[in-house]
Amino acid sequence: MAIEINLDVMMAKRKISSNELAAAIGITPANLSVLKTGKAKAIRFSTLEKICEVLQCQPGDILYYKGGGKDE
């Protein structure tokens, strides 16, 4: 996938656990895990907004476009 998720890095910087973040943004820890591992096919803007609010960051701090060819 050309989009990398750096959510775990930002969580470590903010010293917040997966369970704490999941509770704060209103999703299950299992769904947060899917997002953190990059297995999610989509993310709602409302969820992204809550993540950024709790972690006090910008979307670009947790989402990274890894450019390259079509097959990447």
Rank of each mutant, 00 (worst) to 15 (best):
residue 1 M to T: 06
residue 1 M to Y: 03
residue 2 A to Q: 13
residue 2 A to N: 13
residue 3 I to G: 08
residue 3 I to C: 08
residue 4 E to Y: 07
residue 4 E to A: 09
residue 5 I to W: 03
residue 5 I to L: 12
residue 6 N to K: 15
residue 6 N to R: 15
residue 6 N to C: 09
residue 6 N to H: 14
residue 7 L to T: 00
residue 7 L to Q: 00
residue 7 L to G: 00
residue 8 D to P: 03
residue 8 D to T: 12
residue 8 D to R: 10
residue 9 V to P: 06
residue 9 V to E: 10
residue 10 M to Q: 13
residue 10 M to E: 10
residue 12 A to Q: 09
residue 13 K to Y: 06
residue 13 K to R: 13
residue 14 R to W: 04
residue 15 K to P: 04
residue 15 K to A: 12
residue 16 I to W: 06
residue 16 I to D: 03
residue 17 S to Y: 08
residue 18 S to H: 12
residue 18 S to A: 12
residue 18 S to M: 10
residue 18 S to G: 13
residue 19 N to Y: 07
residue 19 N to C: 04
residue 19 N to A: 12
residue 19 N to D: 08
residue 20 E to F: 03
residue 20 E to V: 02
residue 20 E to I: 03
residue 21 L to H: 07
residue 21 L to Y: 04
residue 22 A to C: 02
residue 22 A to P: 01
residue 24 A to K: 14
residue 24 A to N: 08
residue 24 A to C: 01
residue 24 A to S: 11
residue 24 A to T: 01
residue 25 I to D: 12
residue 25 I to F: 09
residue 26 G to S: 07
residue 26 G to P: 04
residue 28 T to S: 15
residue 29 P to D: 09
residue 31 N to T: 13
residue 31 N to E: 06
residue 32 L to P: 03
residue 32 L to H: 14
residue 34 V to C: 02
residue 34 V to A: 05
residue 38 G to L: 02
residue 38 G to C: 01
residue 38 G to T: 00
residue 39 K to P: 01
residue 40 A to N: 11
residue 41 K to R: 15
residue 41 K to S: 14
residue 42 A to H: 14
residue 42 A to P: 01
residue 45 F to P: 03
residue 45 F to Q: 10
residue 45 F to I: 10
residue 46 S to R: 10
residue 46 S to K: 05
residue 46 S to Q: 07
residue 46 S to P: 07
residue 47 T to N: 09
residue 47 T to P: 08
residue 49 E to L: 04
residue 49 E to P: 01
residue 50 K to A: 15
residue 50 K to V: 02
residue 51 I to H: 09
residue 51 I to T: 10
residue 52 C to M: 10
residue 52 C to V: 09
residue 52 C to T: 05
residue 53 E to A: 13
residue 53 E to F: 11
residue 54 V to N: 01
residue 55 L to W: 05
residue 56 Q to G: 14
residue 56 Q to P: 03
residue 57 C to M: 04
residue 57 C to E: 06
residue 58 Q to C: 07
residue 59 P to K: 00
residue 59 P to H: 00
residue 59 P to N: 00
residue 60 G to I: 00
residue 60 G to W: 00
residue 61 D to W: 05
residue 61 D to N: 13
residue 61 D to F: 08
residue 62 I to Q: 00
residue 62 I to M: 08
residue 63 L to G: 05
residue 64 Y to R: 15
residue 64 Y to W: 07
residue 64 Y to F: 13
residue 65 Y to D: 08
residue 66 K to A: 14
residue 67 G to N: 13
residue 68 G to N: 14
residue 68 G to F: 10
residue 68 G to D: 14
residue 69 G to C: 03
residue 69 G to M: 05
residue 69 G to W: 02
residue 70 K to W: 11
residue 70 K to A: 15
residue 70 K to F: 12
residue 71 D to Y: 07
residue 71 D to W: 05
residue 71 D to T: 11
residue 71 D to K: 10
residue 72 E to S: 06
residue 72 E to I: 06
